[in-house]
Design a protein around this nucleic acid. Structure first.
Lengths: 333, 333
DNA sequence: CATAGCTTTTTCAACGTGGCAATAGGCAGA
DNA sequence: TCTGCCTATTGCCACGTTGAAAAAGCTATG
């Protein structure tokens, strides 16, 4: 059965299409009698508006896109969930794409779909693409997520990554750990990793301690296997770290696994702190001490800001929004 | 700058709107000269087609919806990732919603959006809604995912859950474990859990062993905390299980955590097998033995079938597609 | 009873695209 | 030169909806 349109309903109820539209939208100046007749026709024909047509007419799709490196990675999955909820409570649906951290794929997706009007705005956690490139590519409003540094003129929601990394590192140093490693450094400037490395160094400076550069281990990606490989490297090269700050929880979980496999104990031999507070860390053995960004607030603020931009509202807060975080101390450090 | 439309391009290139459309679609009967002029105008005005309009005209949105209980839960996150990739390779984008396992929310989402034409079809992993309800509600094609039983007339992609559960249980029994618990039973018929319980029982029967009903522990949900609570219950009530088959990996990870907290060892005191093969299980301590569905194949088949239905193709395979799985033996059992 | 002012309903057009069918131009063969 | 045929291009309309504004109906007031 072909879906019923306003016209069909109008015909059935003996009114014009416009009146049907008025009823559907709860326009006030409709007589009780007409409203009832139209309602009944709607129900009988099982009329549901064609949003495609509505969107074309109104220029709005009430869909936002979420673009992340990997939706299957726990942090982004959990964030995605919060964002879907934040968007839904405001009447928006969420189209998700992931880029695999590949800059070409990032750009390609954005170029291909941005003028499509399929979504009204984009939330994105860019792995490599720059803010200026985004501005050039995107012709819908966008709000940035994540730790990377951007021109402060861009809307951007994140926690204070330098402070958080410093807290995590400081927590280890204040326990008397003196060979604190950092896992997850990346070579290119402006990366998420470099921001966290700054915090790592600051914590050392604050206590007048020097960073042993051989304990700062870069990784290709931010996954468990990278953390495990980096940790194995640290242990096997005889660098004897007594603690490690990992730039995300997955690295930390991989690192813990490697520590265990080398017959060492967490936290007795090596203390571990992660970053992100994914659920997995609550139930790992030992449970993971980590930096917990307030995901709910991130999602709410990001969606709110994006919808404000979509609606062309003037925003009186600064573009850059800093969300609270806390250090959750559990068993691993 | 307002986005350019075909009309703007047509004006700039000195041709009709229809010719622009022809060029954009690579229609053959366009002279080299015209094609070049139009191309150039497109580039200059940065013309990108309004997909909303195209979709309205063509009745297709080239978007599919994915509806799962929780996108933030690892299994669904990882599945979502595979599905996004499968869809992308066929030129489709994916709109994701999650229902929290709430039947009203499930229905509400589907009713609200199904006739909207915002997506051409739905992949869904229903937690409670029945196939018949879906057929009544949805007026776009849909393909079911997940372990639940449905009328065989519905398109449905999943592994053989009974066989998989039996393999997992059999693996424990063949090690000589004789007090094998099951965690994750649910009270209502047709649930994912009950299907797996059948496999659990079958494995016992096959070896002529009786199931101790007190070892079959229901849980409210399928999360780590439920697994931990159920396991604690088993240990503290003195039921002395020597192994446990958990109905998903999260339950298993929670159970392992509880076992550890009670000072027992995995697998020496209690062996643990999970279900789903989420990445987390590879790096847990100990690593988790589990049933691994072929996620890639699930995603490919589900998307392929859905697109076939959308295109109205006749499908010569049966509606129900069974995807291979394997038992991955790791450290926990 | 004409006018004004209100409520209710309708008409018209447009959003940007693509399908259909028609038209205009070019060229070969009779 | 005319016919026929093929290529290149165009105009018109429809997809389903809603905004703007006009029209129709209704009541009140002088």
């Amino acid at each position: 059965m072909k879906a019923a349109t306003v016209k069909d309903v109008a015909l059935a109820a003996g009114v014009s299409a416009r009146t049907v539209s008025n009823v559907v939208h709860g326009y006030v100046h409709v007589s009780e009698d007409t409203r009832r007749r139209v309602q009944e026709a709607c129900d009988r024909l099982d009329y549901r508006p064609n949003l495609l047509a509505r969107n074309l007419r109104s220029g709005r799709s009430r869909v936002i896109a979420l673009v992340v490196p990997e939706i299957g990675s726990p942090y982004f999955g959990e964030l995605g969930q919060s964002i879907i909820e934040a968007a839904r409570s405001r009447g928006y649906a969420v189209l998700i794409d992931h880029t695999g951290g590949d800059i070409e794929q990032e750009k390609e997706f954005l170029v291909r779909s941005s003028a499509s009007r399929l979504f009204d705005g984009v939330l994105l956690s860019p792995s490599r693409v720059t803010g200026d490139e985004l501005r050039a590519i995107l012709d819908v409003p966008f709000v940035l997520l994540g730790p990377r540094l951007f021109d402060p003129a861009f809307d951007h929601v994140s926690i204070d990554n330098v402070a958080a990394a410093a807290e995590a590192t400081g927590h280890l140093l204040r326990q008397g750990r003196r060979r604190v490693a950092a896992i997850g450094e990346q070579r290119w400037g402006g990366s998420a990793a470099q921001i966290r490395t700054i915090g790592f160094r600051k914590a050392h400076e604050a206590l007048g301690l020097a960073v042993d550069e051989s304990l700062v281990v870069p990784t290709a990606r931010f996954k468990r296997e990278d953390g495990a490989a980096a940790m194995s490297h640290l242990i096997e090269s005889g660098l004897r770290p007594d603690a490690v700050f990992c730039f995300n929880d997955l690295l930390a979980l991989g690192a813990m696994r490697a520590i265990h496999q080398h017959g060492l104990r967490v936290p007795e031999d090596i203390a571990v702190v992660g970053f992100d507070n994914i659920e997995e860390g609550q139930y790992s053995t030992p449970s993971l001490t980590t930096i917990a960004p307030d995901r709910h607030v991130i999602a709410e603020l990001a969606v709110e800001r994006l919808l404000a931009r979509i609606d062309g509202e003037t925003v009186d807060q600064p573009p850059r929004l800093v969300v609270p975080h806390q250090l959750l101390v559990r068993e691993s450090a």
